[in-house]
Design a protein around this nucleic acid. Structure first.
Lengths: 339, 339
DNA sequence: GTTAGCACTCTTGATCTCCGAGTGCTAATT
DNA sequence: AATTAGCACTCGGAGATCAAGAGTGCTAAC
């Protein structure tokens, strides 16, 4: 167990290090107004804190630096609720002021605002379509042999994909097929489209359409193949501002990781509801083990549909960032619910 | 005028520097099989080349490094046609092998391939829609008050935008309006949509639709407001591999420039037909003045519709890169024409 | 005209020193 | 018993110094 004094000292060390990125010495701590002990006393406490693994030295006679265990303790026990300034709140709220009626717009704007306000890299995993349903399906013929399939969801999301129509398929058949599908599939959740197609409709459809299989395969390809990774990333260059990434080789490995959107997407897809923080080696991805990742989820009708995340150095402004993520994720959920 | 020997030496210096990024000394040059003079002779020639401004020293007793004037001369006069390896050609050709029928897919794939093959940053300015025409216009109602407007072009490009329907507008009117517009505007070039709407159709439309103005304004907003910046950028992290960007502060200014997509878009939009090279300070954008930018254009039916560019250090592999850009832009033009 | 030779210049890396910030420990103080 | 002052010690960082090496410019010889 940590004494109150140790708690105070640990708190000061971490707060200070978050600001300056410099090791903190006993003298500097004793000068803090909230601290009223001599450097010698503090040195004793620091030795204990170090023994317990909450802080570290960079070399034998340096000041102390928080360890990952220290950050973890800080995040779990020492985090003070942070009051966002009125301006900050306003900026976040403003994102939702214009009448944006599309998920995508909201998300794009949020990513930008978040990275600008925090100076970290922000990542949003766009709303998953689990709950969205098919609103309308349509084929637009571009020429004899090419067409675009367009799929509109009830959330205003539009997917489209071009394809070539093989000469074996009768365009009229395709047309008929689409008409039937529209009647039968409107309102069906997107994720269930595939199984619905397979299980329930084949029987009905064979009656209407010759060469069914061929046409179906084409439609399936057009509509379902691409599950796009709706990952939005902003402020990647902010990493350059952090002294911990002065080293180009570190940057390179981190950046090439971030460039792999599917990897990032999978990582975030696993996030638990609410705010969650992974510090350094708590991250499974190697390239992130010098970073902290804070995730928050947002929801539609109480059901989690996406994730907002901030990636920065372990030395993040946890408390401020958490407040911002909370506010943003609530606003997002509210907005989506209102639609 | 440069003597043949001077040309040879300049060529060797630049070729070598492009490979190694290290200053080249007279001894190293004289060891090249293509060179048969002693270091002393070469030193004399180098002094002349330096006086003329084609090469520079990094310090008084260092080897020589090409100046921007040197690169310019090299690019204008010394560039040998580069023969792409069979594999390289194959990789580029493969981009077009699958039956991609959408501009976007082709462009996205090209950007990736290009940056992977060159290790530079590749930028493609997506096809401008000047020549594309409206294929179909459609409104899908999501709810009483929201809808998505979808616009399909003859090239398979799909634009969409959600909007809220103000209560003053009669949904039936909107429907009617869209029907009429579809009949009247199909086949009209996208860029002319706006003027067409204003000039020719207002008269006809007033007969059919009450509250015309309101409905029109909404449609215009939905369809024409956003001219999206179709800029695709790949391999940004490749910059980290170049020794000239070891310095984090240089990287930062360059990266924050690249992050501004509209700036990049405007820059490329101005590119002249064919291959064009800007070296260092020939670039107007400050942040690029340590870089070279090579642009190539591609076309549809002989009309330039977009730009491919590679951004790298001044020490670029000009000749290889130019061959690749040539091949790629031709293939792109061919493919688009074939549709 | 070309090249060998040589003195000179400048970078690079290694080694050393000095300074200061910070520590741990002990002994004095409260 | 807890706190603090005092002090010796440690280590990193900034400079200074030095030697090695790569490269140059110039002169004189070929």
């Amino acid at each position: 167990m940590l004494s109150n004094r140790q708690l105070l000292i640990l708190q000061v060390i971490i707060d200070e290090f978050i600001q300056t990125a410099q090791p903190i010495g006993s003298r500097a701590i004793s000068k803090k107004p909230s601290v009223s002990f001599s450097p010698a006393t503090i040195r004793n406490e620091m030795a204990d804190l170090e023994e317990m693994g909450y802080i570290e030295k960079t070399h034998s006679s340096s000041g102390r630096v928080p360890s990952e265990k220290g950050y973890r303790f800080y995040v779990d026990n020492l985090l003070l609720p942070f009051h966002l300034s009125h301006d900050d709140k306003q900026i976040i709220t403003n994102v939702f002021d214009q009448d944006l009626v599309e998920f995508e717009q909201v998300v794009q704007k949020s990513v930008r605002v978040l990275s600008e306000m925090t100076n970290y890299t922000s990542i949003i995993l766009g709303p998953e379509v689990y709950e969205t349903t098919l609103k309308q399906l349509q084929i637009v013929h571009l020429s004899r042999t090419t067409a675009v399939a367009i799929l509109v969801t009830n959330t205003g999301h539009v997917e489209h994909r071009s394809f070539t129509i093989p000469s074996e398929i009768n365009p009229a058949d395709l047309e008929k097929l689409v008409n039937i599908l529209n009647v039968k599939l409107t309102g069906v959740p997107i994720v269930k489209l595939h199984s619905r197609l397979q299980q329930e409709l084949i029987a009905i459809l064979t009656d209407y359409v010759s060469d069914l299989e061929l046409a179906m395969n084409y439609l399936k390809g057009a509509l379902l193949d691409q599950q796009p990774n709706n990952v939005y990333i902003g402020g990647i260059t902010n990493m350059l501002l952090q002294p911990e990434f002065n080293d180009v080789s570190k940057l390179h490995s981190l950046y090439s990781m971030i460039e792999q959107e599917d990897l990032v997407a999978n990582l975030l897809r696993a996030s638990a509801e609410g705010i969650h923080i992974s510090i350094g080696h708590e991250n499974k991805v190697n390239e992130m083990q010098d970073c902290s990742l804070i995730t928050a989820t947002y929801s539609l009708a109480g059901k989690q549909i996406g994730t907002i995340a901030l990636l920065g150095p372990k030395r993040m402004e946890y408390s401020r960032v958490i407040s911002m993520l909370n506010l943003l994720s609530n606003r997002m959920s509210d907005t989506f619910d209102r639609w």
